[in-house]
Design a protein around this nucleic acid. Structure first.
Length: 423
RNA sequence: GGAGAGAUGGCAGAGUGGUCGAAUGCGGUAGUCUUGAAAACUAUUGACCUUCACGGGUCCGGGGGUUCGAAUCCCUCUCUCUCCGCCA
């Protein structure tokens, strides 16, 4: 949620920035400002009425004490009258506030100045491409064949017990999964991240805090009986740990990491995009989340990018980094870098990480603040990124590292798998 | 799931219809003292809305009600604790 004061003071700047997403926010911003004005005026009026009512009540109390019941009775009349008026005024205010809130929530985050205008994927900037593309044309098997050949993952068993998009990992397939999770968690800890194991279900307030609700309602699994949502990413429970908190400035940046399964309905996906491990309803991911001072968020974003890069290098995977254009960024993000690894058999890039700075967009919703030098509360910045999402990493590892002997495990990972080959 | 108790400021905890945004203690901050620290002492210390400012307003778990007036009375929801039951 954008900050009201920002829209008040720099409304046009916000509209211009949002144009990078190829959306015209002129009207929405205008009605936000109009409703805000209306709300403030109403509030002033209401406050004056309440002030009068408070004063009269006090006087009545004093009069009763002084034994002047007659005069007190006379004042009661005005008091009752005021009660009616304030009640009505309050109801009006509620309506205005709700309207303001619903308009404000419609607006996505304003892109950072470095973000290029664009409509979608095609307009993303390639920041860099690193590593050698393996030359396996013709002989390379796609991962969905390799997982079957080496008995690593069963998609069919998953279909039987749950449905499509819920794979069953087996043997070295399961071991590889566990090894990657541990590898990522430990690498993250070396960077100063503290590990958490959060709940896998969240309430609606948490979904709202990080921006999944109301925007992505249909993408989450919802358990109606208990009104809980299965987490689409660890970002949600982890960032919401800090909802309604005033954190110590000295504690910033707060760095958290967590492994969780992630659940996504992926309504509307089809075709080669969903083949094998490319897109799943349940998958494993290790996430990093940062809560920091506004001045340091972009430096921290760079640091996160560097860290994720390091992980991909240790896994010996060719990758490229994209800076997303306005139109391809998520609703809540101010700037996002995507990481893609090369899939040698599918011969295409697969997204494995998304690292974003949300600035105050989430913290404003969550009321996540710190105290500045003047002891004033100020919104923190929040950031997060995948470090890393497993399925496509597994797909790329299997495809890129396949040999006639079997699949070679990258040496950095061997201490975790305790096997060097899948054969 | 059944029965009971409870929810007050960063924490602990008083307050049962008016002068209570709320005693007191702890904690935090600043100062005095000290070579330094501790202790002691002094002062200060909630959030939010509104206003250029003075000021005004809201908040005692959430929502509703009674009353001129509610932290305090009533209804309701949520959560926590204790006991019983069930259970990894």
């Amino acid at each position: 949620m954008l900050e009201l004061t920002y829209l008040r003071n720099q409304g046009q700047e916000a509209v211009d920035a949002l144009a990078k997403r190829k959306i015209n926010a002129q009207d929405t911003v205008a009605s936000v400002l109009q409703l805000d004005e209306q709300r403030r005026n109403g509030q002033t009026e209401l406050d004056q009425l309440l002030s009068e009512a408070n004063q009269i009540s006090k006087e009545i109390g004093n009069l009763f004490k002084a034994g002047k019941a007659q005069e007190a009775q006379a004042l009661k009349q005005r008091s009752t009258e005021l009660k009616e008026i304030t009640k009505q005024k309050q109801a009006e205010q509620e309506v205005v506030k709700a309207a303001l809130e619903s308009k404000l929530v419609e607006l996505p985050n304003t892109p950072y100045h470095l973000v290029k205008e664009g409509a979608g994927e095609a307009d993303n900037e390639i920041v860099k491409t690193v590593g050698e593309i393996p030359k396996l044309e013709g002989v390379a098997k796609p991962h969905w064949e390799l997982t079957e050949q080496y008995d690593l993952i069963s998609f069919d068993l998953g279909v039987k017990i749950t449905g499509a998009g819920f794979p069953v990992y087996m043997g070295k397939g399961a071991g590889l999964q566990r090894a990657l999770i541990n590898f990522f968690l430990e690498e993250n800890q070396k960077q100063g991240y503290k590990e958490f194991i959060p709940p896998h279900f969240i309430n609606a307030a948490s979904g709202f805090g990080t921006g999944q609700l109301p925007d992505k309602e249909g993408q989450m699994y919802h358990m109606g009986e208990d009104d809980l949502y299965a987490i689409p990413t660890a970002e949600v429970p982890i960032t919401n740990l800090f909802r309604d908190e005033i954190v110590n400035r000295a504690d910033l940046p707060i760095q958290c990491t967590a492994y969780t399964p992630c659940f996504r309905r992926e309504a509307g996906s089809y075709g080669k995009d969903v083949r094998g491990l490319n897109r799943l309803h349940q998958f494993d991911k290790v996430e990093i989340v940062n809560v920091c001072h506004p001045d340091e968020s972009y430096a921290l974003l760079d640091k996160m990018v560097e860290h994720v890069e390091g992980l991909l290098q240790k896994l010996e995977l060719p990758y490229r980094i994209l800076r997303l254009c306005g139109g391809d960024m998520g609703f809540t993000s101010a700037m996002t870098y995507d990481f893609e690894v090369w899939s040698a058999a599918q011969e295409r890039w697969l997204e494995v990480s998304s690292v974003s700075n949300f600035e105050t967009f989430q913290s404003n919703r969550m009321k996540l603040r710190f105290r500045d030098e003047n002891n004033k509360t100020q919104l923190c910045h929040t950031l997060n990124g995948s470090a890393l999402a497993l399925p496509r990493i597994v797909a790329a590892l299997l495809e890129n590292h396949q040999t006639e002997k079997g699949i070679k495990i990258p040496s950095a990972l061997v201490p975790y798998t305790r096997f060097e080959w899948i054969d």
